[in-house]
C-alpha cells in the first residue's frame, strides 16, 4: 500500500514537471522571438538550444508517465483521456520548438515596423498555451476550474487569430516580393498554429472534464 502511494506521488511530480516544461518552453519561445526581432542572434540561439533540451526532456518524461500508467493500470477510468491530453500537449511543445527552429534555419526578413505586432502575436499564442497548461493542471486537482481556463484559452486563441490576420493583411498590402510575403505569412501561420494546437488540447480537456464529472 505504501508503494502504491509513493508511486502515485512520484507520478504526480512527473506530470507537474512535464507541464512545467511546457510553460518553460513557451517562455523560451517568447524570449527567442524577441531576441530574433531585436537581431540579438547569439541570445536567440541560446534560447533555441535550451528549448530543444526541454523538448527532449518532455518527450522522455511523457513516455515514462505513459508506460507507468499502463504498467501499473493506474486511473483505469481516466487513463485514455490523460494519455490523450499528454500526447496532444506534447504536440504543442513540438510546434513551439519547430517554429523557433525555423527562425534559425530560414532567417526570415521580418519587417521592423511590424515587430511589435509579431511580438504581440507570439505573446498571445503562448498565453493560449499557458491557459491550456493551467486547465490541464486543474483537470487533475480542481475539475470545476477547468472550464474557466478553457474559456481563457479560447479568448487568447481568438486574439492570436486576429493579430495573425492583421499582420498578414499588412504584409500583403505592401510592395514586397511574393516569395517574401509568402515566407512572412508562413511564419505567422506557424506561430498561429501554436495557439490552434493549444486550443485543440483544451477541446479534449473540456470533454475529459465532462466525462469525469458525470
Amino acid at each position: 500500500m505504501t508503494l502504491l502511494f509513493r508511486q502515485s506521488r512520484e507520478l504526480e511530480a512527473q506530470i507537474d514537471e512535464y507541464l512545467d516544461l511546457i510553460i518553460q518552453g513557451g517562455l523560451l519561445f517568447r524570449q527567442g522571438v524577441k531576441c530574433f526581432l531585436e537581431h540579438r542572434l547569439d541570445e536567440f540561439e541560446v534560447r533555441l538550444t535550451e528549448l530543444r533540451a526541454i523538448e527532449q526532456r518532455a518527450d522522455h518524461l511523457r513516455r515514462t508517465i505513459e508506460s507507468t500508467l499502463y504498467i501499473h493500470t493506474l486511473i483505469p477510468d481516466a487513463r485514455g483521456d490523460v494519455l490523450g491530453l499528454l500526447e496532444s500537449a506534447d504536440e504543442v511543445l513540438n510546434m513551439i520548438t519547430v517554429t523557433l527552429k525555423r527562425f534559425s534555419v530560414e532567417n526570415p526578413e521580418l519587417l521592423d515596423d511590424l515587430n511589435p505586432l509579431f511580438q504581440d502575436l507570439a505573446a498571445s499564442a503562448i498565453a493560449t498555451v499557458e491557459s491550456m497548461v493551467a486547465g490541464t493542471r486543474a483537470y487533475f486537482r480542481d475539475l470545476a476550474a477547468v472550464r474557466d481556463h478553457v474559456s481563457r484559452a479560447q479568448g487568447y486563441r481568438e486574439e492570436t487569430n486576429r493579430l495573425a490576420e492583421t499582420y498578414t493583411r499588412e504584409v500583403f498590402r505592401r510592395n514586397l516580393r511574393l516569395s517574401h510575403k509568402n515566407q512572412l505569412r508562413y511564419f505567422v501561420s506557424h506561430t498561429e498554429q501554436v495557439a490552434e494546437d493549444a486550443e485543440d488540447v483544451c477541446d479534449r480537456l473540456a470533454i475529459a472534464a465532462i466525462k469525469r464529472d458525470a
Binding site: M1, L4, F5, S8, I75, Y139, F140
Partner: peptide, 17 residues
C-alpha cells in the same frame, strides 16, 4: 472531493486502498 482537491492519481491510490 470538492474540498480536498486531491490529485487524480492520489485519488486513484486512495480508491484502490
Amino acid at each position: 472531493l470538492r474540498h480536498t482537491r486531491v490529485h487524480l492519481l492520489g485519488r486513484d491510490a486512495l480508491t484502490r486502498a
